[in-house]
Amino acid sequence: MNFILKQRSVLPGFGLAMGFTILYLSLIVLIPLSGLLFKTATLSWADFWGTVASARVLASFRLTFGAALIAALINGVFGLLVAWVLVRYRIPGKRIIDALVDLPFALPTAVAGITLAGLYSSNGWIGRFIEPLGLKIAYTPLGIMVAMTFIGIPFVVRTVQPVLEDLEKELEEAAACLGANRWQTFVRVIFPAITPALLTGFALAYARAIGEYGSVIFIAGNMPMVSEITPLLIITKLEQYDYAGATAIASVMLLFSFLILLSINLIQWWSRRHAER
């Protein structure tokens, strides 16, 4: 029996299942992804830095990370609100509303992109009311934020909702009996309990918004230095056959995604430790 992968079970099929899992994972994910890292490693530091620190790339980083942060914050607030209303209040058609929350997961990003661009352009359903107020949304960084907010909606709702559902009613009763008013109960009892879920949802929405391409490019305007997101810049470099440049930018984005993934794992580890105590 294999000593590194200590299997402790009487059931058969470990070798086959594990072997196939590792093989498929390596072929589809690990080898292609490490190809990107190797390619980055072959770049000279000057080339790498020259690409990554150029004004146009830096502007795209600022725009992408900044707009994604604002979108994730909006989703943090409204996602919590939606989860709260869905769990705590009786509203007609709740099951339909609940199912609809997953629309941004299910709707292909290109469809979301052209639809949002249409809605917020100057003669669109929403744009025509907002533009007279002197606010342009489509083809500006604001439009990018709108698209990023759209695709991030399910994350916070779906992470907070189950935690709210499982929250013990007794804790709130105890707080009320001890004289806390509703606001104090929320701030001191409920909010701390859902904070890890809220942070996880926020981080997931942030990560998704940073990498998002399809729903953003149609509404973005894609002007270099102003409304050009990083994923689009990678594609532009590829179309110019600048593989080294595309790789350099991609490796920075990938590093950032992994940092977010790591922080999500840390949040969950930390909250599990708290729950056990």
Partner: peptide
């Protein structure tokens, strides 16, 4: 169905494609 070391790490690796930008997935 089995116990082995590095299980959590394996699950993280399986989830990896979700945290990669679609553009990078093509790249």
């Amino acid at each position: 169905k089995f116990k082995f070391r590095g299980k959590a790490f394996l699950i993280t690796l399986i989830d990896l494609p979700f945290s990669v930008s679609p553009v990078i997935s093509g790249l």
